[in-house]
Structure formats: structure tokens, C-alpha cells
Simulated scan of single mutants.
Amino acid sequence: MTAPEDRCRLVLIVPDIADIEEQAKVVADALRGGDVASVVIPQYGLDDGVFQKHAEKLVPIVQAAGGAALIAGDSRVAGRVKADGLHITGNVAELTDAVEKFVPKLIVGAGNAADRHHALEVGELRPDYIFFGKLDGDIKPEAHPKNLALGEWWASMIEIPCIVMGGTDAKSALEVALTGAEFVALREAVFADPAAAPSIVAEVNALLDEKAPRFED
């Protein structure tokens, strides 16, 4: 049995649930299903105060399960809730600012790399990871072909790890793993039926254990 670090690992994107307690329970349950490298907590249009309350509840849950809690939204919220990192979906200037201010104290990841040119621009800033796809871009069962192609291209030549957004079907995690990407992000695939979330996380890990390519040191 190889360690999950030797293959593509799962990243969860917290679903948009207005009720803080319910959102926290759903995430905690999912994390019981097995290995999750990190959890991205999107702001989903909440104002900063309400978002901070959500994050205060979620961050310790993620950290207790051994994952990195990443805030996609207000960087001040990330500091206040002692998150592990920031997921920046803004422009290059915003990313530059975040890298200068927060690395290496916090993980700083770059979303919003929609093509090769932009991805290379982002790569020059040396973020901790690059994310291909949108956090809510899981609208079809399979991962978006463009994101798979970007992930494969990036993973084959750049050392900075990449996360590729999967689809609404849990099996899309394997599609992503086969590109060589270090991480696959899932949202609807895990959370569409909250009661099933832990078993889906377990199923995805089993699938990746069995079929994902192994990384060489």
C-alpha cells in the first residue's frame, strides 16, 4: 500500500450551504471518509462578517482531520481564522500581493489560470499551487477537457503542483489523476448527497490507490 502522497490526492471544495452548522457537519462527515489533502472554503457572495463565522467553524474541522484549510475570499478572514492558506482567484496583481505578503507563512494558491499563457505568468510568481478550473465549475459528470489538457501540460513540465477541478461524477477523479496532476478537486461529486459524502471520499481514495499513476521522487 503506497502513501497517498505518492499519487494524486483529493481536495474538497466546501459546498454553498447557508446554515453554518449544517455546512460544518457535512464537511466533517466527508472528512471522515479518508485522505483529503486540503479543503477550499469559498466565500460564495457572503459578506466578510458572515463568511468569517463560516470559516471559524470550518477551519478547525479541516485541520483536525489533517487537511490544509484554504480560504478563497478575503485574506483578512484567512488571518483571523488561522487558516493554512489562501486561494486567490483574482488577477496577477492580487496574486503578486498575496505571495509577497503571506508566503511562506501561509499557502498561497492561484486560481483563474484559464490558458497556458496565463498559467505561465502565474507560475513566474511561484505560488504554492495552481488551480485549473473554477471552484464551481463542476457542471458535467466529467472534468472539463480544457482543464485536463492544461493539467497534463503543466504537470509534465512545471514543478509547482497543480489542482484540476473534477466533474460531478466521483470517477472523474481518476481522469484527473491520469493527467499527472498532483491533486483533484471535487465539490458536487462528494456533496450532492451529504449523507453519502464519507463513502464517496472513501471510494475516490480507493480508486486512486488502485489506479492512479505513482509519482517518482
Rank of each mutant, 00 (worst) to 15 (best):
H87M: 07
G79T: 14
D169L: 00
D35M: 12
A177M: 08
N205I: 01
D115E: 08
P141D: 03
E216F: 11
F51M: 08
L120K: 06
L186F: 08
R7K: 13
G180A: 03
A170W: 12
V190Y: 04
A68F: 09
I17D: 01
Y44S: 07
L86S: 10
I20F: 10
A83G: 09
I13Q: 00
A3F: 05
R214C: 03
H87V: 11
D48P: 09
T179F: 03
V122Q: 02
F102R: 05
V14P: 01
N147Y: 14
A69I: 06
A202G: 09
K105D: 15
G137M: 15
L106N: 06
S172N: 02
P141T: 09
A72F: 13
D209V: 00
A197C: 00
E56Y: 01
G66A: 02
H118P: 01
G67K: 00
L106I: 01
G66I: 02
A196D: 09
D217F: 13
A110Q: 07
L125P: 10
S75T: 06
C8I: 10
D19L: 06
D74P: 10
K146A: 10
Q52K: 10
A83V: 13
G133E: 08
L186P: 08
G66T: 02
P194A: 01
P145M: 08
D138F: 13
N147A: 11
S156A: 04
Q23C: 13
E210G: 06
A173C: 06
D193H: 15
A78S: 05
L148A: 05
V50N: 14
P42V: 03
R126I: 05
G66Q: 06
I130S: 07
L178G: 02
T168V: 03
E94W: 13
G34I: 00
F191I: 00
K171H: 10
V184L: 07
A170F: 10
I160R: 04
E142Q: 09
D136C: 07
F215S: 09
D47T: 10
A212L: 00
V59Q: 08
F102A: 04
